[in-house]
Amino acid sequence: MFARYTAPAIAIAILATLVAVDGAAAQTVNQPPDTMAARVEACTPCHGNKGEGTSDVYFPRLAGKPAGYLYNQLLAFRSGRRKYPPMNYLLEFLPDPYLEAMAEYFASEHPPLPQPAPSEVSKDVLAQGELLATSGDAGRNIPACVSCHGPGLTGMQPGIPGLLGLRANYISAQLGGWRYGTRTAKSPDCMQLVAGHLTEADVTAVAAWLATRPAPANPAPVPKGTYALPFGCGSQPN
């Protein structure tokens, strides 16, 4: 008696489970993957599948940069403060938490850094670039890149980006943007102050040297507060 009732009950339970599983599977099959990777496919033609960059030298690598830095850029593109129409257009109607999730996603990706391309500038120019990047020029109020971006140029959490894996064209375009005021950030706008002291030749030299840097053993940005910044920066509040 007991067994007779139990068997159909079990059969019904199993059937119900099967139906449920089947329903869930059907739904998943007809839906895009519920992942950030699928959600950020719109970014990949320019920034690469994992944010490693593409062959276009003007599109930057995103992977492994500090999430705070990436988030600041997404906010700046969304509001139009940072101007690049294809980016401004894509982000215009996306909410803060989603932009934060996008920033976290690319920050957590670690595709290998590319082999540095051979430089097109002379040895002298590279040497000038190295000098500015590693020692700055106190007489002209130019701090060394490494004083903020870190001795390994890997950046610092949460707001200072690493400078590795970027092409000379991208770096010089951005420094040009800072110099001419077309790229700005929260006050005090430290990069605008720095770039304002650079000449065109400085920009070429620094960009060229940075682009020749090989990947360090540990390309991750250093933790917040690892070193003190030489001056205040709106993007990296203390």
């Binding site: 959600r39 719109a42 033609p45």
Partner: peptide
Amino acid sequence: PGTKGNPMPYGMPP
């Protein structure tokens, strides 16, 4: 658009 009902929309690549 990111909305209350669809806060993390999927995007089309350019």
